[in-house]
Design a protein around this nucleic acid. Sequence first.
DNA 1: CTAAAATAGTTTGCATACAAACTTTATTAG
DNA 2: CTAATAAAGTTTGTATGCAAACTATTTTAG
Lengths: 183, 183
Amino acid sequence: MSTRLDTVAEIIDNLRRVFQVVNAQSKKAEHETGLTGPQLWAIKTIAQEAPIMVSEIARRMYLHPATVVGILDRLEKQGLVKRIRSTEDRRVVRVELSERGQALVKKSPEVAQGLLVAGLERLSTNKLNSIARALDQMAEILGAQNIPPQLILSPEVNKPYRTVAGAVRAKSAGRRRPTKTKP
Amino acid sequence: MSTRLDTVAEIIDNLRRVFQVVNAQSKKAEHETGLTGPQLWAIKTIAQEAPIMVSEIARRMYLHPATVVGILDRLEKQGLVKRIRSTEDRRVVRVELSERGQALVKKSPEVAQGLLVAGLERLSTNKLNSIARALDQMAEILGAQNIPPQLILSPEVNKPYRTVAGAVRAKSAGRRRPTKTKP
DNA sequence: CTAAAATAGTTTGCATACAAACTTTATTAG
DNA sequence: CTAATAAAGTTTGTATGCAAACTATTTTAG
């Protein structure tokens, strides 16, 4: 029948492979710096925008705030970041790097994408562009279909703790995780 | 400097977005069937090849055996799969679906990729092909550089518990996880 | 044939990741 | 101004995911 379907399957397959490898590579490579991929990514995000709100970190990393809290806990325990409760709006917590954190961010390699980045940089401009266009398109597909584009790209997100996926939900309206123990 | 670097950054960025969305979508969509993405994927893998060894499931899902054990534990607790210790080679465990599992697999939707697949199928053949080529290339970059291609594509994998990432290691030779606190 | 090595699966410990519920603080409605 | 909402962050519970260590079984080497 349709080679088109096969092509789609191939794309999904390769996407999975890329997922796996980047993931594993990230896990490994960053472990060598003493930090995990997400931790390093968080550190870099903070370095760029400090002092930065927790929710802003979550937004920039496309993560749930609860996840960011965990990552910050561990970074703080290692003395790499500081949390500062805002006096203006006491709900807000501003995060910044400690000196150790700053030092670390300076000497931390480009990690995470390492392999892929290096490989991509080796390609011809033409191939590079076509890959960029392809991924653009995939992002667009995922963003334009069921998901409000802002959910991924723009600042006014993360309001109801619904995450990117929350939007996809909509049609399901099913109760999730009915609470194990106590009220 | 080079717009090339920007292009690479854009690719990485979009890749992350795709990761996130597919991940989230998978998490949600499959939750609607009562099972998580990995669980559903495992069930389908088992359905295709039952009775199947645990290590074979791991290989097909590109996961670590330990991860598969966890998934199987939960599926078994729900009465969807059965584990049968082989009498020939008593190290081996063969996994198959229970009747409930088989029933479930029949009515479970094509899940997991849903959104992306649907979006891709809507594209012109040309665009589809160029996306396929792009991902091919990325997979190749990741596979051809530091990783033996078989590690991802061929059957004779997963022998030493090295996983996809293990191969990347090789050149690093560093101790991993030296038990918590370190210099 | 027995000691050593290899395999299959599991267990343990930790780091993500998210949803739901909760706390504290600010905003808004009436 | 007070009651109701909303917002920011956190806590709790569960599910992935991996590495290292471990158990039980084969295989292999000497």
